[in-house]
């Protein structure tokens, strides 16, 4: 799926999310979850650890948003509370899996170029977002370093104080100040490298719809229709 056009994938992703959102049948959603999991792990070779880490927040939301239906059932559709809870939970997981599949199989820069050149999104917005993606791990690394240094400043043998030193709110201000400075420098660097140039930008690596995208679209729609019909 990595070679597919990102905007086609985005459109199909929205279609699947729409289907999962409006589907009320747990079996439909279960088949969708199984299919997406198979594609992610089988076809896209996503490592199991990455899969588990990526799915974890959606599983959390699935559990926390569905349990109330099980313990306090409503008789609107004549279903049991557990049936409703299962549908709500599966819906959350299905939406998460669609998002994971899109993120895992899409190069952010390709999506950015497609958004700028084909959907005419503002370049500053798209490149700013890409730069921000880059900053998050750097910020996380800086936070890790700051925590480690803060812990090291507490004498050994005082485990509680060492742990608390790494959670000092002052570190947040240090990191925030660094992030603001870094964002300012990045904005300056992007402008100095012609981000706001009035010349027509290059069409280098702008993704285009190809025959494989049409095949993918037809296959994805057929799969959805099959799930709806079978389940």
């Amino acid at each position: 799926m990595r070679t597919l056009d990102p905007l086609v994938k985005l459109a199909i992703g929205f279609l699947y999310i729409g289907f999962a959102t409006f589907s009320e049948q747990a079996p439909e959603l279960a088949v969708l979850v199984v299919m997406l999991t198979t594609i992610l792990i089988g076809a896209e070779a996503m490592p199991l650890r990455t899969f588990a880490l990526g799915l974890a927040p959606f599983l959390f939301f699935a559990v926390t948003s569905s349990w109330i239906y099980a313990v306090a059932p409503s008789n609107v559709y004549g279903w049991t509370g557990w049936q409703v809870a299962l549908a709500v939970g599966l819906r959350t997981v299905a939406v998460g899996l669609v998002s994971m599949l899109f993120a895992y199989s899409t190069e952010p820069a390709d999506l950015g170029r497609a958004l700028v050149h084909r959907l005419h999104f503002p370049r500053r917005f798209v490149h700013g977002a890409l730069a921000a993606i880059q900053f998050l791990p750097a910020l996380a690394e800086e936070a890790r370093m700051a925590r480690l240094i803060a812990r090291a400043s507490v004498p050994a043998g005082n485990a509680m104080r060492r742990a608390m030193a790494g959670l000092n709110p002052g570190l947040g201000i240090t990191l925030l100040a660094g992030a603001i400075r870094r964002a300012g420098t990045a904005a300056l660097a992007m402008e100095m490298r012609g981000l706001s140039a009035t010349t027509r930008t290059s069409t280098w690596r702008v993704p285009h719809v190809a025959r494989r995208d049409i095949v993918f679209t037809l296959g994805a729609i057929a799969a959805l229709a099959a799930i709806w019909w079978v389940a």
Partner: peptide, 22 residues
């Protein structure tokens, strides 16, 4: 560190060149 704005080496090298419309 803050100057790099792209996610891959080739995208970083291409950034200014794309902006110039090469």
């Amino acid at each position: 560190d803050a100057q790099l704005v792209a996610l891959t080496v080739e995208d970083e090298l291409a950034f200014a060149l794309e902006n110039r419309g090469l």
